[in-house]
Amino acid sequence: MDKKQSLLALSAIAIGTAAYNILKPVKSNVAVVDDLDLDRYMGVWHEVARLDFFWEKDLTDVTATYTKLSNGKIQVINRGFDQKSKKWKQRIGKAKPLGDPKDGALKVSFFGPIYAGYNIVHIDEDYKYALIFGSNTDYMWILSRDVDVPENIKQKYVQYASRSGYATQKLVWTKHEQ
Rank of each mutant, 00 (worst) to 15 (best):
D2I: 07
D2R: 03
D2V: 09
K4M: 06
Q5N: 14
S6V: 13
L7T: 13
L7H: 02
L8H: 05
L8P: 07
A9L: 15
A14S: 10
I15L: 12
T17F: 12
A19S: 14
N21V: 12
N21K: 09
N21M: 15
N21R: 12
P25Y: 04
V26Q: 01
S28C: 15
S28T: 15
N29C: 08
N29R: 04
V30M: 02
A31F: 08
V33N: 02
L38M: 06
D39G: 12
D39C: 02
R40Q: 11
Y41R: 05
G43N: 01
V44Y: 04
V44R: 01
W45V: 05
W45E: 00
L51F: 06
L51V: 11
D52K: 11
D52M: 12
F53Y: 07
F53R: 09
F54V: 14
W55N: 14
K57W: 06
D58F: 08
T60V: 09
D61S: 12
D61E: 10
T63K: 01
T63Q: 01
Y66T: 00
I74C: 02
Q75V: 08
V76Q: 01
I77D: 13
R79Y: 02
R79K: 15
R79M: 11
G80E: 10
D82L: 04
Q83F: 03
Q83S: 07
K84M: 12
K84S: 13
K84L: 14
S85P: 08
S85C: 08
S85N: 09
S85A: 10
K86R: 10
K87T: 11
K87N: 02
W88P: 05
W88M: 01
Q90P: 04
R91E: 12
I92F: 00
K96D: 04
P97D: 09
P97N: 11
L98C: 10
L98E: 05
P101Q: 07
K102D: 08
K102S: 13
G104D: 12
G104S: 13
A105V: 12
A105Y: 09
L106H: 12
L106V: 12
L106M: 15
F110G: 08
G112R: 02
P113Q: 11
P113V: 07
I114G: 07
Y115C: 04
G117C: 05
N119Y: 02
N119Q: 02
V121T: 06
V121G: 04
H122A: 07
I123E: 07
D124Y: 03
E125V: 07
Y129L: 02
Y129K: 03
L131M: 10
I132N: 07
F133N: 00
G134E: 00
N136F: 05
Y139K: 13
M140C: 11
S144I: 08
R145A: 03
D146Y: 09
V149D: 11
P150G: 14
E151I: 14
N152E: 15
I153P: 06
I153K: 00
K154N: 13
Q155M: 08
Q159N: 15
Q159G: 11
A161H: 03
S162Y: 06
S164Y: 01
S164R: 13
G165C: 02
Y166L: 13
Y166I: 06
A167K: 04
A167G: 02
Q169H: 05
Q169S: 02
L171C: 00
L171V: 11
W173L: 11
T174N: 13
H176E: 14
H176K: 04
Q178A: 13
